[in-house]
Design a protein around this nucleic acid. Sequence first.
DNA 1: AATGAATGAGGATTCATTCAT
DNA 2: GATGAATGAATCCTCATTCAT
Lengths: 198, 198, 198, 198
Amino acid sequence: MPKLGMEPIRREALVKATITEIGRAGSLDVTVSQIARRAGMSAALAHHYFGGKTQIFLAAMRHTLGVYGAEVRGALAMAQGPRARTEAIVRAGFTSSNFRRDVVAAWLNFYVLAQSDDQARRLLSVYQRRLHSNLVFNLRPLVGSRANEVAVRIAGLIDGLYLREALGRDIPSGDAATGQVLTALEQDLKQTERDPRP
Amino acid sequence: MPKLGMEPIRREALVKATITEIGRAGSLDVTVSQIARRAGMSAALAHHYFGGKTQIFLAAMRHTLGVYGAEVRGALAMAQGPRARTEAIVRAGFTSSNFRRDVVAAWLNFYVLAQSDDQARRLLSVYQRRLHSNLVFNLRPLVGSRANEVAVRIAGLIDGLYLREALGRDIPSGDAATGQVLTALEQDLKQTERDPRP
Amino acid sequence: MPKLGMEPIRREALVKATITEIGRAGSLDVTVSQIARRAGMSAALAHHYFGGKTQIFLAAMRHTLGVYGAEVRGALAMAQGPRARTEAIVRAGFTSSNFRRDVVAAWLNFYVLAQSDDQARRLLSVYQRRLHSNLVFNLRPLVGSRANEVAVRIAGLIDGLYLREALGRDIPSGDAATGQVLTALEQDLKQTERDPRP
Amino acid sequence: MPKLGMEPIRREALVKATITEIGRAGSLDVTVSQIARRAGMSAALAHHYFGGKTQIFLAAMRHTLGVYGAEVRGALAMAQGPRARTEAIVRAGFTSSNFRRDVVAAWLNFYVLAQSDDQARRLLSVYQRRLHSNLVFNLRPLVGSRANEVAVRIAGLIDGLYLREALGRDIPSGDAATGQVLTALEQDLKQTERDPRP
DNA sequence: AATGAATGAGGATTCATTCAT
DNA sequence: GATGAATGAATCCTCATTCAT
């Protein structure tokens, strides 16, 4: 009994299973069989849908980036004014849907993959550029010509806290991380108050 | 052609070759043969000296951490006063011997390895704790009770900039990264001036 | 060419090939590839079905013991009275399906394997205990309290003749071996006649 | 300081170490390094003295057979008359120097080796023939034309009891084994009394 | 006499991928 | 649409053996 319209369901199941398995293994050393099993299908079917292991990883990556992007857009839509919007961007990064142990592990591994796989690198670049311009756009009214520099600092700090979290044994605390970044942000704002450079 | 006392020579060659190969591959998916070939010996000999692939990686890791630690100690020895010492710690992280493309790639992969390998995790913990307490010790006179929080921020930012550099296409610029961290540090110091909390 | 339900077919082919190859080599120094090739498949498939080399050997062992056990049961079913049954047990051990050169070699190697592998040891123990109790049960009416001792002697002699056969160059003669054991048995019976010990 | 006259000492140490290691492993899967280490020298030296792994095994085998042969000859020298001499041969096989766990394991493995190695086979043949003719020679006055057949039975039983002992968990009991064989022998003698066939 | 150094050959095992059904 | 069957290629690791010192 061939089932119709299974494709999107299967794909989604595989993407989720991929994130889960990468999280469990803590690395990309995960077999297609493991992923497929967790997704409730045969390895052959996984291949059928995605064409290969790398494609599966990339799809999982796109999914993760997509979720993250949606979260950012959602937060931006609610916020009023540049400061609130900048803070919203920061907060979105540490939401409970993004700052989960397995997702963090996936991110870390995607960074690794991006070093050898061009598609992955491009994907990450897109994310990084988008984050950067989002930050710069909203920081400009707040810190003027410092916007670029501050954006790099904020983004760097976000990544760094992610990285640290990947290793800690305790459940990731989004609040603490958010607090760290917002404090850094606030000091950049104060610095501008003291020494404005339009 | 001396035939005795080769062990340390071989070990060192293997450690270097490991860093290089990880740098080239951008991942831990490097065969023992590749490493051994680059180090100018057979894979069997590499196994003979290290006992296994993981041990080779860990030795390379220890070496990298060792170099880093030496650099930090050296910098600390030259610096006078807490502020200079704190800056020295930061600068040491972005020295040209640490902030090389392949070394950064190695670090990134060690983070990954630490998620699944206990020895690697322990090694990283040691490094992180040492960095943290170094920072806290020198920050105390500067920012008082904020020392811990500031140390986390500084360390996080350092890691984040490392991470970003791993992906960039251009040669890593230690100066830019150092500048970023020192700016963040300076703002934390000013904040304390404004609002001292002994 | 049916493509489903291959598993039992493959397993059986592998088990047979294992016996054959052990027979040819005269030892367990047989590669999985050799076995797989003889069974008409790739080494990978052999692993797929059995999980590892030891498992393949154990399966072959179980098969051999199974055949032997079936033969004994078959012979017992035909025989009437304790003496006939005891003789049947002896004869079953030297049947042409059990007393083949390669099977004898397999036995010998299983003894060796049993010294280091626990599963193998357990398997052999089961066989030995079964043989022993079969003998004792049927010997009791014939030799009374000597049953245990006689059973040990009979079983020992069977094993010894197997061992000797493993080395001889000529085709194993089940008849000669059977004769030897039956003679020993008969003398034990006569001894009981002369000196009954209920 | 080159030591003189070390050769015999080294060889003996290696032979003993070989028996010990085979006993520990329960198989011939013993590396030359293991043997050499136990014998207190380098693997290279072991090769130097024996030429190769097989040669080391064969030397150990010759040694074992030699000890056994000496024991038999010693026992024969003490015994008076054919019956005592026959019993002496049997007893020699289960002496505490021959019926040790590791020696039994070695024997078993030599049987295995003899299936693939010609030198080993020849060595075993020599032992078997010698044992056989020793038995026949002394049995002739006792059982007349049955001598050959009885010798096969006795020798088979000895081998079988060895084999059984190789697997048992308890310390080998030479007495019990000797008893078994002597009982069989006695019954053969009685049989001849009843039905003499000169 | 003795050994550390060194390697080639080989073997178990894993896995992504393909294919026939 | 879905999967069991099947394999080639790769990789880690072991080990007997050789050689220079």
